[in-house]
Amino acid sequence: MAGMKGLKKKRRIQIIAIAAVALVVSTALVGYAMRDGINFFRSPTQVLAAPPSEAEVFRIGGLVEEGSLVRGQGETVRFNVTDGGAVVPVSYRGVLPDLFEENQGMVGTGRYVNGTFEASEILAKHDETYMPKEVVDALKEQGVYQAPDGEDS
């Protein structure tokens, strides 16, 4: 009978060990996601100043450069995003949002590969209420941001 008791205890220790490992892993993953979240957003100026690694997924935001939108063959769309200082070419496969236009704000999620931002998701941002504060700040810094409806900002 003593053998059974030892087995149960051993089993409990195994379960505790597995739970502890799972906790450490999930904590590390959350920490990693949070760390990524801090530099999750970049303006085109920041991307060109310090290009992220091709593995890193981040968000880029700015204005769609006028005259840069090219709807290519199939579903691939190319355009440039600018913050008034730097310009980053973007390629995107998929359907663009209805509000997507040149000279409008946009935010894309994706990776920077060989000098082009390969977007997995594109969001159109029409005004300050939707635009991430970082985009607005980046545009204001470059002196190209106009407040909606001609308000003075």
Rank of each mutant, 00 (worst) to 15 (best):
T109H: 00
E66C: 00
R11V: 10
M4H: 12
V77L: 03
E141R: 13
M131Q: 15
L23I: 12
E101A: 15
G6W: 15
G61T: 09
G105D: 02
R11M: 15
Q46C: 01
A147G: 13
T76G: 01
F117N: 06
V21K: 00
V144Q: 10
D152W: 09
A55N: 14
V90F: 02
F41I: 06
S53T: 14
I16F: 08
I18P: 00
G62V: 08
D98R: 08
I13D: 07
T129I: 10
I18M: 13
M1L: 03
E134Q: 14
K5Y: 07
Q104K: 14
I15Y: 10
A86Y: 05
G6I: 11
N80E: 07
L69V: 07
R111V: 07
H126V: 14
G61L: 13
R11S: 08
G61W: 06
D149W: 07
I13Q: 10
G94Y: 07
M4C: 03
G85V: 12
R59E: 12
P89E: 04
A20S: 13
M4A: 11
D83R: 06
N39M: 12
A20H: 01
I122G: 06
F100K: 04
V88I: 13
G67R: 05
E75F: 13
V90P: 03
F117R: 02
K10H: 01
G84D: 08
Q146S: 15
H126M: 15
E118G: 02
S68G: 07
G72P: 03
P97Q: 05
G74S: 12
A22I: 05
E151R: 09
Q46T: 04
